[in-house]
């Protein structure tokens, strides 16, 4: 596992740009790998010789395989049970956060609109999980 690598599963171009910019500023030594659809996640993580990221940042609302589907598949895989998965979403539906925790999410984090706040939220999330690694 590489603690300095973060996998971001996100289909929105705007959010990809914002996440890359935010982590680049707060954690310049961290490598961010973007995966643009849910279906690509498991093959990427389970490929022979694949480098395991220290954390997966997961969007929920994606076309095709949703973030929740990805989460369930990750947790069903014996080798990926210990992977830190942070759901990063603008959804405010309490039922969705319950479903994510039930499926094995480590964090369910609100995605702010304001970029300064967006950056703070990501920085604190990364700092927290790194301090627990």
């Amino acid at each position: 596992m590489n603690e300095d690598l973060i996998m971001v599963v996100e289909d929105s171009d705007e959010d990809v740009e914002a996440i890359g910019r935010a982590i680049g500023r707060s954690h310049p030594d961290t490598r961010v790998e973007f995966v643009r659809s849910g279906a690509e996640v498991l093959p990427r993580l389970t490929a022979d010789g694949a480098i395991r990221p220290g954390m997966v940042l997961l969007d929920l609302n994606m076309p095709g395989e949703s973030g929740l589907d990805v989460l369930r598949r990750l947790r069903a895989h014996p080798d990926l049970a210990g992977l830190t998965v942070v759901v990063f979403t603008s959804s405010e539906d309490p039922a969705e956060s319950d479903a994510c925790y039930a499926a094995g999410a480590d964090s369910y984090i609100y995605k702010p609109i304001n970029f300064a706040l967006f950056q703070t939220v990501l920085r604190q999330t990364l700092d927290y999980w790194r301090s627990r690694a």
Binding site: E92, P94, I109, Y110, P112, L117, T120, V121, Q124, Y128
Partner: peptide, 17 residues
């Protein structure tokens, strides 16, 4: 109930763990 939940959601982890 939802208002209270949103307060908690907005503050974590921006200002508190």
């Amino acid at each position: 109930g939802q208002t209270m939940h949103r307060v908690a959601r907005m503050t974590v982890p921006a200002i508190a763990e």
